[in-house]
């Protein structure tokens, strides 16, 4: 299957000599939600900006829907919708005019019916005649999404789409993103909220200092790099870890009242059974136990600080 976005050996060196992207290779498949994670200044926005035509690449090849973004820029760009990170909106135009402008700019004939559907889907219909300057930050963010969707893009870039929006709006946006994916739109999102990527993404890419250090299916990533933790609340306090357990990844917590066993998600069955058996043999009793899985955030932090 031809990827919707194909990036090969992409490099970007800014005029001052700063290399923002180093030999990026990436493929994004049709209909998936791809989350690009990385710390501030890692190169996420530069990568998106190059694909969308806002920033010039230094070298390499980028294709959208099979079209080269430079040679076939018209075809490539007409497939793409972009919601940038900054709240860059017009101030004096009405919501309707601003969204209609975007549709025309992308070469589509006026279609009031489509604009109406987009505005209704984003709960902007009641605000259609309001000037954008009179809207709240969250509403302006919705306007930007409406503008990006006005020309019915096949590929949608969301650069930090929920930055600074309230929880309710964030949930609404997640719902909208899922619906878009169901309709066949490929979605690439960058986010600081790892919870967002964990909630929505099919695949995760991690970028650090201009290099893609990992691209993996989310579930596989969580299994492969995720850790599980078993916490046992003991009946009797332990002064130290018994000798029989020193080879296990265990530690004492809560002043000796809690035993924590950390293990790879993939090895859970064997490790937990062995630990509980050993505790039974040693006569160490516990009154409660909980397991906890490491979040994508913990995996991400571990990756970018390696």
């Amino acid at each position: 299957m031809q990827p919707d976005i194909s990036v090969k050996h992409l490099n970007k060196v800014y005029a001052g000599g700063f290399q923002a992207l180093k030999d990026i290779n990436l493929e994004i498949h049709p209909g998936e939600i791809f989350a690009l994670l990385g710390p501030n200044g890692a190169g996420k926005t530069t990568l998106i900006s190059i694909i969308c035509g806002i920033v010039n690449k230094t070298s390499g090849e980028v294709r959208a829907g099979g079209y080269d973004i430079v040679k076939d820029y018209r075809k490539a760009r007409s497939l793409i919708g972009l919601v940038p990170q900054e709240l860059s909106t017009d101030a004096f135009e009405t919501v309707w005019d601003a969204v209609s402008f975007s549709r025309g700019l992308f070469g589509k004939a006026p279609d009031p019916g489509h604009i109406e559907r987009v505005l209704k889907a984003l709960s902007l219909w009641d605000k259609r005649n309001n000037r954008i300057m009179s809207l709240s930050g969250g509403m302006k963010r919705r306007v930007m999404i409406a503008k990006a969707l006005s020309h019915e893009p096949r590929i949608l870039f969301l650069d930090e789409p929920t930055a600074g929006v309230d929880v309710e709006l964030r949930r609404d946006m997640w719902e909208m993103v899922r619906k878009l994916r169901e309709s066949g739109v490929t979605i690439i999102l960058t986010t600081h909220y790892i919870e967002e990527a964990e909630e929505m993404a099919d695949r995760i890419g991690v970028i650090r200092q201009g290099e893609i250090i990992l691209v993996e299916d989310k579930t596989r990533l969580m299994t492969k790099l995720g850790k599980k933790e078993l916490r046992l609340q003991l009946q009797q306090r332990l002064d130290r870890i018994p000798g029989e357990l020193t080879l296990e990844p265990v530690e004492l917590a809560n002043d000796g009242w809690e035993l924590i066993f950390t293990f790879d998600s993939q090895q859970e069955q064997a490790g937990v059974a062995r630990l509980l058996r050993t505790l039974g043999d040693l006569g160490i009793e516990y009154r409660d136990l909980q397991t906890r899985e490491s979040s994508l955030e913990e995996i991400f932090v571990g990756l970018v600080h390696e």
Partner: peptide, 10 residues
């Protein structure tokens, strides 16, 4: 900052 739209349009 709305120039992004013109630059990214076909």
């Amino acid at each position: 900052g709305t120039i992004y739209e013109v630059l990214s349009a076909p």
